[in-house]
Design a protein around this nucleic acid. Structure first.
Lengths: 335, 335
DNA sequence: GGTGTGTTGGAAAGCGCTTGCCCAAACTGT
DNA sequence: ACAGTTTGGGCAAGCGCTTTCCAACACACC
C-alpha cells in the first residue's frame, strides 16, 4: 500500500493538516516551536515524503524545467545539458528531458508534454530550421506563453522569445580572419544542412570574415550535409573526391570536423599538412584528438546556466554569448 | 486565464465531466460516437491539454522514470542515458534526470525527490562504492520498494534489487589474456578509486586473466586515482615518475586511458611504442583518437534499454551483459 | 407485459495538498 | 485596565482529474 500522507503525519502529531503542511512544506507562516518539533518527529517516524503531484496541483506548478535537445549523445548538446542541469539543481529545480533526433515534430510533442506536466519552464536547445518550419513552434510557444509557461531557446531565436545565443557570425568571421592571417588563401566549408540557422550563420560569418581580408570561398567548395560526425565524414569525402587539396577546410562544428579528419586520413592524406582544418564549439573531446584542432571556443555550459537564469528571472531577455578563436596544430602553416 | 480545464471542455461539449474524461484520457468505458466527437471538437477548440499533476494525483502515478547519473558530461554515462531515454520514450515514459557528481548523498536526495514525484521507477547508474556506504541506499531502496516504487540499478548490484550489469571480471580477464597473447609481459594498472565496485571488478578480473597465463602485475604498478580523465592523467604521471617503461598499461575505463595517453605524450613518450595502453568501455570518442585505443566494447546503450525494460516489465531480474575485446593500435607489438 | 441483460451518461466521492479566512490567546501601549 | 495589535492554530474550500456507483434506456427473451 501507499506512502504515508500529510494527514497521517498531522494525525500522529496531533495537529491539523494546515499546521503540518506549514511545517513540512514551507510557508510564510511560522509555527510554534513545540508543534514544529512534534510534526517533524512524526514525519520522520513515518518516513513521510510529500506527494509531488498533489503539491503541484494545489500550487499550480511543479518545480520542474523541461529540456529538449536533439541528441543527448552529441557532446555539444551534452555540454549545454550539463550546464542546464547544474544551474537547475542549484535553483532547486528538477530537469526532465526529451530528445527529438532532429525532428521538429518531436519538439512539439515534448513541448506539449511539458506543458501538460505544468513545468515551470522549458529550455529548447535547438536545431531550429530556417523558413516556414518555424510557424508551428512559434504558435505553440505563443499559446504556451499566454497560459503562463516560460520558454527559453538556446541558439535559435524565434520572435521575441527569450533566447541565449552564441554570436556565431562574429566568431566565424574572426576565425576566418585568423586563418587568413596565418597565411591560408584557399578555403572550403563543410557547411551542414542548408536550412539550419546555426550552420547558416556560421557559414555567412565565415564568408564575411574572408571578404574583409579580400578572400573568398568558391561556391563548389561549400559542401552541405548532416550536422553530425557522419555528415562531416561524408561531406569531406565528397570534397576530396573533387579536389585533393581543397585548401583550408572550415567545418561548421567540431563533430563534423572530427568526421572530416577521419575522412582525410582514410584518403591517405595528412590532416594539417595536406588538408588544414578548423572546427567550431571546442567540445571537450578535442583534448584527445591529434593533431589538435583549431576551433572557436564557445561557452556551452554557461549557455545552459544562462538559459536557466532567463527561465527563473522575471522578464524576458536575450543573451548573446561570445567566444574565442583557438588556433591549434590542425591549421598551423609549416612552410 | 490559465489553461483550459476538463470541466470547461465538458461544459462546452454539453456533457458531464465523466464523459469528457473518458473520451480524452483513455478509459475502458466506451462513449457514444456522437458525444465522442462533440468532446473532441471542444477540446480542440479550447486547445485543451490535460493537467499532468492532476492526473498523476488521481491515478496515483506519473508516467515518469527518474534517472540518476553521476556526470552527464562523461561519455560513459551519456551513452547509458541515451539508451534509457530512447527506451523510455518508446514506452511512452518521460525521463527526469539528476546528477550526483559522484556523491552518494546526492543519490539519496534524488531518490527522495523522485519518490515524492511518484515516478514510476528510478534508474540509478552508478558509481556504487564498496563497503558500508551501501547501507543507506539499500535502506531507502527497500522502503521505496515497499511503497511500490521500482528501482533498477546499472552496474552496481545491491541485494536483490533488479540490476543490469556488465560482466566486468570476465571481460577484463579476456582482455588480459589477449594482451599476453599479443606478447606483452609487463603490466601496470590505472585502477581508479579503491572502493568503486566497477574498478575493483575490472582490476580483479584483469589480475585473474593474467594469472591464467602465468603473468602478474606488480603491486607497485597498480595506481589508484579518480575514475575520470584527470584521474587517469594524474595516475599515469605518477606511474611514469617511478618508471619510464611500466609495460603495458590497463586503464580501467576509457576516459582514464585518454587522460593517461595525454600524460604519456607530455612525458615525451609515444603511446603504443613506448607505452602500450588499453582501456575499457569503447566510448564513441575513441573513433577520433590516435593511435587507436585497444579496449573492451561494452553495450552501453543497450544497458540503458535493458534498465527500462526491467523497470516496466513485471518481476525483477538481473541482466548480465557481455562485451568484446577490441584490439587496436595502442597495444600492437611492433617488434 | 414482465423481467433480465447490456450499454451509455451523470453525480459525486475522493486523490493529497495549499491557503484564505476566522478565531482565540498572548501581547503591546497608554 | 482596556482597546488595539500581533501571533499561531484550525476549518474548509478548492486544485483538475479519475472512477465507482447508480439511473436511464434499449433490447431481447420467455
Amino acid at each position: 500500500m501507499g506512502q504515508p500522507t500529510l494527514y497521517e503525519v498531522a494525525d500522529r502529531a496531533g495537529v491539523s493538516l494546515a499546521t503540518a503542511s506549514r511545517v513540512l512544506n514551507g510557508s510564510t507562516r511560522t509555527v510554534g516551536e513545540a508543534l514544529r518539533l512534534r510534526v517533524m518527529a512524526a514525519a520522520q517516524e513515518l518516513h513521510y515524503s510529500a506527494n509531488g503531484p498533489a503539491q503541484a496541483m494545489a500550487r499550480g506548478h511543479n518545480n520542474t524545467v523541461g529540456l529538449i535537445v536533439s541528441d543527448i549523445a552529441d557532446p555539444y548538446f551534452t555540454q549545454i545539458a550539463a550546464g542546464v542541469i547544474e544551474a537547475a539543481e542549484k535553483a532547486g529545480l528538477v530537469v526532465t528531458m526529451g530528445t527529438t533526433g532532429g525532428e521538429p515534430d518531436r519538439e512539439l510533442d515534448h513541448l506539449g508534454g511539458f506543458r501538460s506536466q505544468r513545468a515551470n519552464g522549458v529550455v529548447i536547445v535547438g536545431s531550429r530550421r530556417h523558413g516556414d518550419r518555424i510557424e508551428p513552434l512559434a504558435d505553440h510557444l505563443a499559446s504556451y506563453g499566454q497560459h503562463g509557461g516560460r520558454v527559453v531557446l538556446v541558439s535559435q531565436p524565434v520572435g521575441e522569445i527569450p533566447c541565449v545565443e552564441v554570436d556565431n557570425r562574429k566568431l566565424a568571421a574572426e576565425l576566418a580572419r585568423a586563418l587568413v592571417d596565418q597565411g591560408h588563401r584557399e578555403f572550403a566549408v563543410l557547411a551542414g544542412p542548408t536550412d539550419l540557422v546555426t550552420s547558416r550563420d556560421r557559414l555567412t560569418g565565415f564568408r564575411n570574415g574572408l571578404r574583409s581580408r579580400q578572400q573568398a570561398v568558391p561556391a563548389e567548395n561549400v559542401v552541405h550535409g548532416a550536422f553530425t560526425r557522419a555528415g562531416g565524414h561524408a561531406s569531406m569525402t565528397a570534397l576530396l573526391g573533387r579536389n585533393r587539396s581543397p585548401g583550408c577546410v572550415f567545418a561548421v562544428n567540431d563533430v563534423m570536423a572530427l568526421g572530416a579528419m577521419a575522412a582525410i586520413e582514410e584518403a591517405g592524406l595528412q590532416v594539417g599538412r595536406d588538408v588544414p582544418i578548423a572546427g567550431f564549439d571546442d567540445i571537450p573531446t578535442l583534448a584527445d584528438v591529434r593533431p589538435t584542432l583549431s576551433t572557436v571556443r564557445v561557452p556551452l555550459r554557461e549557455a545552459g546556466h544562462e538559459a536557466v537564469r532567463l527561465l527563473t528571472e522575471p522578464g524576458g531577455g536575450h543573451v548573446v554569448l561570445s567566444g574565442e578563436v583557438v588556433l591549434r596544430d590542425s591549421t598551423a602553416r609549416t612552410d
